[in-house]
Computed example of a mutant assay.
Amino acid sequence: MRKEWDIPDEQEFWYTGSDWLQVLLDKHDLDMRVKILLLLWRSWFLRDDCVHHEGKESVSRSVCFLVRYEEEIRNLSMIDETKGKSSWSLFVSGATKPRDLPSAESSPLWDKPLIGEVKLNTDAAFLSETGQCWAGAVARDHQGRVLFSACRLMNACRTVEEAEGQAILLGIAALSAMYRGSLIIETDCALIVKELEEGSQNRSACFSTICDIRSTATFFNSVSAKAVKRNKNKLAHELAVRGRREGDSLIIADVPIGLRPLMLSESTM
Rank of each mutant, 00 (worst) to 15 (best):
E198T: 10
L153A: 13
E81I: 12
I185W: 02
D248A: 02
E129Y: 08
Q22A: 13
V160Y: 10
E161I: 12
G136E: 06
D49E: 11
R47W: 12
S107E: 10
L262N: 09
S128A: 10
R68F: 06
T16F: 00
A173Q: 14
R260P: 01
W41A: 08
G84Q: 03
V59P: 12
P98V: 09
L250W: 09
G171T: 10
W110T: 12
Q22K: 11
E12G: 05
P98F: 06
A137M: 03
S62E: 13
G165P: 07
L38R: 09
E186D: 12
S200G: 08
R244S: 04
L235W: 07
V146Y: 04
A227H: 05
D212H: 08
C64A: 09
C133P: 03
A125W: 04
L30V: 13
I252H: 03
R140F: 01
I257Q: 05
D80V: 14
K234S: 14
L25P: 03
I252T: 11
V118G: 00
E129V: 07
S106G: 05
R242S: 15
S204G: 15
S87L: 00
L39M: 04
I184F: 09
Y69G: 09
L24Y: 01
V51P: 00
G258W: 00
G144F: 10
R74E: 15
L147W: 02
I210L: 07
L239D: 03
P261I: 01
R47K: 13
L90C: 01
A163W: 05
N75G: 15
R68A: 14
E238G: 09
F219C: 14
D48G: 14
T130C: 02
K234Q: 13
H237A: 06
G171N: 07
I36C: 01
M263H: 11
L109G: 02
W110Q: 09
K232A: 11
L25K: 02
G17F: 07
E57S: 06
I7D: 03
L76V: 10
E12W: 09
F126D: 02
S224E: 11
D254K: 01
E10S: 10
L169I: 06
W41N: 12
T187D: 00
D31I: 14
L21Q: 03
G55E: 11
L250I: 04
I213D: 04
A95H: 08
K119H: 04
G116F: 10
E186R: 02
I257W: 02
S200D: 13
E10Q: 07
G144P: 11
G243Q: 01
C50T: 08
K112L: 13
L239I: 01
L114Q: 15
K234T: 12
N121V: 02
W44M: 09
L183D: 08
D29F: 02
E162C: 06
E54T: 13
G116D: 04
L259M: 00
Q11K: 10
G247W: 00
N75Y: 13
E186L: 05
I210Q: 08
N221L: 14
A150Y: 06
L239R: 01
L37M: 11
L175N: 04
A227M: 00
S58T: 15
A150W: 06
Q132L: 10
T209Y: 11
E57Y: 03
E12M: 10
P256D: 05
L90V: 11
L196C: 04
S93R: 12
C189T: 10
L101A: 07
W88I: 07
I172G: 03
G136F: 03
